[in-house]
Amino acid sequence: MKAAIFEYARADSIAQACSLLAEHGADAKLLAGGQSLVPMMAMRLARPAWLINVNEIAELKGSRRDGAVWVTGAGLRQVDVERDGELARAVPLIRQGLYWVGHVQTKNRGTLGGSLVHADPSAELPLVARTLGASFLLRRSGGERTVPADEFFQAPMMTATEPDECLVEVHWPVWRGERVGSAFDELSIRHGDFAIVAACAQVEIDTAGRCVRAALGIGGAAAVPVAAEAIARSLHGTQLEDATIDAAVESIGQCLEPGSDVHATAEYRIHLARVLAARVLRQARTNATGLARDTRA
């Protein structure tokens, strides 16, 4: 349970991290909070020849509104993201998802970007990013590019990030309407464990109570988090009555490809996805109808 030997460098800027990556490429790993990478190294599932510590890079820790998106630095600690009241008002699903992540000791260390690039298919932050259609700013020496969430998550523990790229920022769409509500729910064996299935939703309603916009996502039931776009679209123009929601999520299995394991069969995962999807849509509707925008689940 001790990590294999590695060479180590501390990067003090994004540019320095990128040039170290350019030099060591596929042999190197960026070390952020280490809450996923270090256990994998302890179990020798990961043996990077180089670790590049990006924890001390101040440029990676910004959080600001920029027009229609909220920009978060990839190096922000999960605990700081969770406590950011302005962010919670602008993109409430992030805090609602983080409620389910790990424990205080891991959130004090774990970063936003680290969880996203680790890309566990049942992790909460990737699910929120996919559901809302966040985008990812990746930088390498001499260039940068933006990748949308539907292209970013490619397979379990695999993202579009190339070995010489560093995730710098995540851009979260802000729904500007007055009546926006969201909710996150999941089933896990114990609090803080990875979800067996997780679901989240965000809806916007007009003054007549009609749904004008909806997003629904399911985690833990496919190789990557899934945005159930057809179901979300089918809710547009409805009053989001319980019966409408139940009918809409009936077919949710069509967009999922769950596996079976010791915790749950594929069939049970689809059942859970249906139950949780209906639950988060109802809760999102209730939160949207509330007088003030509710930032809690």
Partner: peptide, 20 residues
Amino acid sequence: SVILDGDPVRSCLMFAVQAD
């Protein structure tokens, strides 16, 4: 668990160099 700069963290999930 130990306290790092005021906050509890797991000391098996950090390398000593990171605490420099």
